[in-house]
Computed example of a mutant assay.
Amino acid sequence: MHFEQPHLLFLLIVLLPLALLLFAPRKAARNAFAPEVLKLLLQRTSTVPQWLRSALLLAAAALFIVALARPVVDHGEIKVQSSTIDLIVGFDISRSMFANDVYPSRLALAKRKFDALLGDINGTRIGVIGFSARAFMVSPLTEDFATLRYLVSNMNTDSISLRGTDLLQALQQTDTLLEGSDKKALLLFTDGGGGSDFDQEIAYARAHNIVVFLYNIGTEKGGVIPTEQGAMTDKHGDIVVVRRNDDVKALALQSGGAYLPYSLKHNDIKALADALKSCFTPRREKSDVIRDLQELFVWPLSAGVLLLLMALYSLPQRRRRHA
């Protein structure tokens, strides 16, 4: 056994002068206190003697100091091997992702689906990007899912002024972030944009070993894009209706990934998570060596609390009845 914080044991020295004061002869106490104060200090209010109460308090303080010093038993070293899958998640933040055919908007739904995804994809390092006519990084690869949730929920959408959905930008950003990986995983939350020909994106994904998993958000009926002046209109004054683009399905399937259209099911995103895990073999990382330490502080802490309660326990004496 040894102590993780052995320097704290020096606090035990502080208890020595305190013990001398508590157990000082009564003559010394008379010199230190006024008679009225001394009478109150020496007055017995319980069945526990004063000397025993002081001893219990000192012992409790000593045990608390020992607990702070963290006594541990070292059981040796343990080799831990960790394996992960690296994944980039891309959010389409073009204007069409604010259409109201999905409540409250397509982008808001994408954020909720991402939050659900984090609960189904343990053992994964995730990086996040946003894209419209250009792509930018929201978070590098990390296993800190709490931070990812915060960053995605507060994602800066200033670039929604850039019209259009350029999936090639997302692919290029993924290739940069996963540089050095033999096989790259990209999950896109998008409505597919307005294009119908994705040959360039498919060729790029194949050339750079990017496997695309795509969650297509929106409805076939489509919706309008709310603005401060009402529904968005085109240059002719007609209301713009944006629909889900199912042609983007070719990018996911021809890159070796999976495609899932929007649905009202709560656990539909789990299907994409399962498809991703079955497609990618976890990458084995180097072994980490950690020490197997058994903490023992709970024992002196518990004993100290028990002694403290005994010292503070007060049972009033019965008052003597005078005839």
Score class of each variant (00 low, 15 high):
residue 130 G to Q: 15
residue 276 L to V: 02
residue 181 S to L: 11
residue 41 L to V: 06
residue 175 D to C: 10
residue 1 M to R: 07
residue 126 I to M: 05
residue 161 S to Y: 11
residue 111 K to N: 05
residue 249 K to I: 01
residue 62 A to K: 04
residue 252 A to G: 01
residue 148 L to T: 01
residue 262 Y to H: 12
residue 14 V to G: 04
residue 82 S to I: 14
residue 38 L to W: 03
residue 89 V to E: 01
residue 235 K to H: 15
residue 79 K to I: 03
residue 97 M to R: 00
residue 311 A to Y: 08
residue 55 A to Y: 02
residue 169 Q to F: 01
residue 84 T to R: 10
residue 230 G to P: 00
residue 238 D to N: 14
residue 110 A to L: 02
residue 93 I to H: 00
residue 233 T to A: 01
residue 116 A to L: 13
residue 244 R to Y: 07
residue 113 K to Y: 06
residue 54 S to Y: 15
residue 261 P to Y: 09
residue 100 N to Q: 05
residue 319 R to V: 08
residue 24 A to P: 07
residue 65 I to L: 12
residue 319 R to E: 06
residue 267 N to E: 11
residue 7 H to K: 05
residue 291 R to F: 13
residue 129 I to E: 03
residue 8 L to D: 07
residue 128 V to W: 00
residue 69 A to V: 01
residue 64 F to T: 05
residue 51 W to P: 11
residue 35 P to W: 10
residue 35 P to Y: 08
residue 124 T to G: 04
residue 288 D to S: 09
residue 175 D to V: 15
residue 171 L to F: 01
residue 160 I to A: 12
residue 303 A to Q: 06
residue 135 A to V: 07
residue 271 A to P: 06
residue 323 A to F: 10
residue 230 G to D: 02
residue 82 S to L: 14
residue 99 A to D: 12
residue 80 V to P: 02
residue 198 F to V: 04
residue 271 A to T: 13
residue 71 P to G: 03
residue 307 L to G: 01
residue 277 K to N: 07
residue 129 I to V: 09
residue 79 K to Q: 07
residue 246 D to R: 15
residue 182 D to E: 12
residue 238 D to K: 08
residue 287 S to D: 10
